[in-house]
């Protein structure tokens, strides 16, 4: 069965027709060419496919595209403002938290939503928050450091205001 689908992705409205069985992850990657969200396990285990749905991080591999009617989806591609990377992205680069990078778009999505709710987290809270993400490269330490650094950057009001 096919469904008309109106969904906003990274601020851009899309009107498409999707098959019932198309997952949100496959829709983003294969139909729209939005390849930031990665297919690691396709089963809810690795977190590489994480996107924000109305601001809440969710596994796009376990969601049908057809369920997204009227929703706002944000992927890693939607975090920067023009040339200005999001503070979480900046912190990941500064702290050397990225190796192969496959897991990073998902972790940054989760970290962004987490920091907006917990501006002053402890290291343990950060570890718990990203516990649904697997990274085969970094050993997680720099990732946790980067999220702590991003928290600090997000707490400091912008200089130019």
């Amino acid at each position: 069965m096919k469904h008309p689908l109106g969904v906003t992705i990274n601020g851009v409205p899309y009107d498409r027709v999707v098959e019932s069985r198309r997952t949100l992850l496959d829709f983003l990657r294969d139909e729209l060419g939005i390849t930031g969200p990665k297919k690691g396990c396709d089963a809810g285990d690795c977190g590489c496919c994480m996107v924000l749905i109305d601001g809440v991080p969710m596994h796009s591999c376990l969601i049908l595209a057809a369920e997204m009617e009227g929703r706002q989806v944000t992927t890693i591609e939607g975090l920067a403002r023009g040339d200005q990377l999001h503070p979480v992205q900046e912190a990941f680069i500064r702290c050397g938290a990225v190796q192969c990078g496959f897991c990073i778009p998902g972790i940054i999505i989760t970290a962004k939503a987490f920091l907006e709710e917990h501006p002053n987290p402890t290291t343990d809270e950060v570890i718990e928050a990203i516990s649904g993400h697997l990274c085969r490269c970094t050993g997680y330490l720099q990732i946790v450091d980067a999220i702590m650094a991003a928290a600090e950057a997000m707490r400091v009001p912008p200089q130019h205001a």
Binding site: T110, E128, G132
Partner: peptide, 9 residues
Amino acid sequence: MKSPTLRNR
């Protein structure tokens, strides 16, 4: 119930 993000859905 792991992970915390799964509990969002």
